[in-house]
């Protein structure tokens, strides 16, 4: 263990995002649904955090609140000490691959958020991110002609192009086949290690969470609260058959109430 400890990179201690007593209640017609209950969470600058929970538990709602698309019923989110009041180009939300604009080419999508930049700089950045996500040769292609994995990479590129300091990813690889998914996880880690954005990643896949995150936030069933926070103290690239990996993963399995031998 001590050896591993030294390999783990030093975690930046500055708080980036802070959720304080966040509650969310939806009213639809006469039905009231309590979705989030007293969520408290701190995320450090440059940290990779996974929100993990079963489908429909409210983790995507929490992410939408963090991104400013929804206003919590009570409590608030602070980012860099400021209360979040709406979406902001400094923090980009990545939807499943459906979020790319089908009426724009690959170039048009990547350049979408760069409209305030002068043209030469915009083109330079577009070219840089086209290359980063490996879409060279597809610059003039429209999204319906791309594969699911390519669309997903395109959306990540569109988000990175505006140089945000945070990324919110909502089950971004959920619709991909398992091989593409593995590749995309590797790509995301590579980008994260190069650019050091703070990333909050929603998933219902335990393996995905343990492979990617610095910390895994295990959410309870609805109304969701933070059940446990698990630090993943394994350096990247992670050996998914190492005893420590299996131990952490099984621990989370148990936490989530699915305890079983694999």
């Amino acid at each position: 263990m001590p050896l591993m400890e030294t390999l783990v990179k030093p975690v930046a201690l500055k708080t980036k995002l802070c959720a304080e007593r966040v509650d969310m209640v939806f009213h639809r017609d006469t039905k009231t649904t309590e979705v989030l209950n007293d969520i408290n969470l701190e995320v450090s600058d440059g940290e990779f955090v996974c929100l993990l929970g079963p489908s429909g538990c409210g983790k995507s709602t929490l992410l939408s609140i963090m991104a400013g698309f929804l206003t919590p019923t009570s409590g608030h989110i602070r980012i860099d000490g400021e209360v979040v009041r709406g979406p902001d180009p400094r923090r980009i939300f990545v939807f499943q691959e459906r979020g790319v604009f089908p009426w724009l080419t690959v170039e048009g999508n990547i350049g979408f958020g760069l409209f305030r930049l002068p043209r030469p700089e915009r083109e330079q950045r577009i070219a840089y991110y086209v290359k980063m996500v490996g879409l060279q040769g597809f610059e003039k292609t429209y999204p319906p002609e791309l594969s699911g994995g390519m669309k997903q990479r395109l959306e990540v590129a569109r988000a990175l192009a505006v140089n945000p300091d945070m990324l919110f990813l909502d089950e971004p690889f959920g619709a991909l086949d398992s091989i593409t998914r593995l590749i995309m996880r590797g790509e995301l880690l590579r980008i994260w290690e190069a650019e050091r954005k703070t990333i909050i990643f929603v998933t219902h896949d335990i393996d995905e969470a343990v492979q990617l995150a610095d910390r895994v936030v295990v959410m309870s069933a609805r109304p969701a609260s933070v059940q446990q926070i698990v630090s993943i103290d394994i350096p990247h690239p992670r050996d998914i058959s190492s005893p420590r990996y299996l131990e952490l993963r099984d621990g989370i399995f148990k936490q989530i109430g699915l305890a079983h031998r694999v």
């Binding site: 991104a67 698309f69 709406g86 979406p87 902001d88 180009p89 980009i92 939300f93 939807f95 459906r98 979020g99 604009f101 009426w103 724009l104 979408f112 958020g113 409209f115 505006v162």
Partner: peptide
């Protein structure tokens, strides 16, 4: 119009007129 397009447009800091011209209009065409 799928909500994701509108949310994505807002996320990139579009002003209302820009949102109409760059998201709403192409999405309804």
């Amino acid at each position: 119009i799928p909500l994701v397009y509108i949310n994505a447009g807002r996320n990139f800091g579009l002003r209302p007129a820009e949102l109409v011209y760059r998201v709403l209009y192409p999405a309804v065409i």
